[in-house]
Design a binder for these strands. Structure first.
Lengths: 204, 204
DNA sequence: CCTTTAGGATTACGACCATACTACAATTGG
DNA sequence: CCAATTGTAGTATGGTCGTAATCCTAAAGG
């Protein structure tokens, strides 16, 4: 294992970015699968098959399933952050975000939707590793959402944004769970009303 | 299977209520276990062991695990309904309910807390049988919560109550997931603010 | 151009746990 | 004391995570 006289060290036989690209592909497809079938409902074999690989290759990329879940949650929340930053450049960005979040389309497509809406109570039961990843990620999301809510005062209102996230997530989950189309859409509408009500109250 | 001449049918050798009592015991302890470890995280063997039985006896009481989960969710939501009815007789029942729901104690004790807060996103991914049980149960809860919110006008405001439930559930889940005591408590406080804001707005 | 070589993937396996089901035994009321 | 009902214990099948040995291939060097 030791190079007796050398410094050169490891020579990259594969292109340096090949492994990293594979890792990213695994994380991306795992995002969809985990949101669709849940953290406990998705097995390593299935997750790898989604990425076009077999189970054995998994542990060359991640130390454990929890490590993949943590990495995936971090990635998902960063993607959501990027979306919020993008909306910050558009007029009525916040209103458009809320409308899309509480839409029947988002309700019916958990696979490509908000990770919090799909997984929040499972995250709460998960290992510290996963909860740490979620906590750091959601605070970042909250900061960008706060900017979107009050473009004039950057850096303030993270906690108000967390309250807004709680409303959005709870509403989405309830609309998904209720097995009655009319009541489900009524829930989405009530969620939008709750957001408006929250915005109408003074900051603190 | 057909009794050729009889009406009397089955003669109960065990006290008629013995099996029913066992069934109820299973459902009660399953409520705690499922909320603690999740729907996917709890196995039939564990659930039966909690009730002091072994796995084999399970299928004398329930047709499948889904059937038990559905029965348990129905029971849990009926228990929540009973709590709300009880609070309706006391002054400031609604405010007290919200305060208890968004308390650190409830956040730290999912096992004996709200079933929606512990299981909502898993319910949304579950079989039609489970979703039906949840839907019927939560609408009952919403009706009683509506009465608690506006004691003067019974029967109205179910949808507003559903909006309130969404806020409570989302807030509780977020507070449980966040791995930072200060931010977690801030989330609980923001949830209470959101409820107040919702109450301050006109009905429709 | 061809061999060497190491990194990455495959297949196979181990130990364990899941649901579902079935004989068999224990219990208990009549 | 009988017999139905309830519970035990064990089985079947499949899925889980994680590990280990084998194979393949792409790149480096002669």
């Amino acid at each position: 294992m030791q190079h007796p006289s050398g410094e050169g060290g490891t020579v990259a036989r594969y292109g340096t970015e090949h492994k990293e690209a594979t890792r990213r592909r695994i994380i991306k497809v795992a995002g969809r699968r985990l949101k669709k079938d849940g953290l406990d409902g998705s097995g390593v074999t299935t997750l790898m098959a989604d990425a076009g690989l077999t189970n054995g290759a998994f542990y060359a990329h991640f130390a454990s399933k929890d490590a993949l879940v943590a990495a995936t949650i971090t990635d998902q929340l960063q993607e959501q952050q990027a979306l919020l930053r993008q909306l910050a450049d558009e007029p009525d960005g916040f209103a458009r975000f809320v409308r899309a979040y509480l839409s029947p389309g988002h309700r019916n497509d958990a696979e490509s939707g908000c990770p919090s809406g799909a997984l929040l109570d499972e995250v709460a039961r998960s290992s510290p590793e996963i909860r740490r990843a979620y906590s750091a990620g959601i605070l970042g999301v909250a900061d960008d959402l706060a900017t979107l809510m009050a473009p004039g005062a950057p850096g303030t209102g993270r906690r108000r944004a967390l309250g807004c996230i709680a409303i959005l997530v709870g509403t989405l989950q309830l609309a998904r769970a209720i097995d009655d189309p009319q009541e489900s859409e009524a829930v989405l509408a009530e969620g939008a009303r709750a957001i408006s009500a929250l915005l109408a109250t003074p900051e603190h």
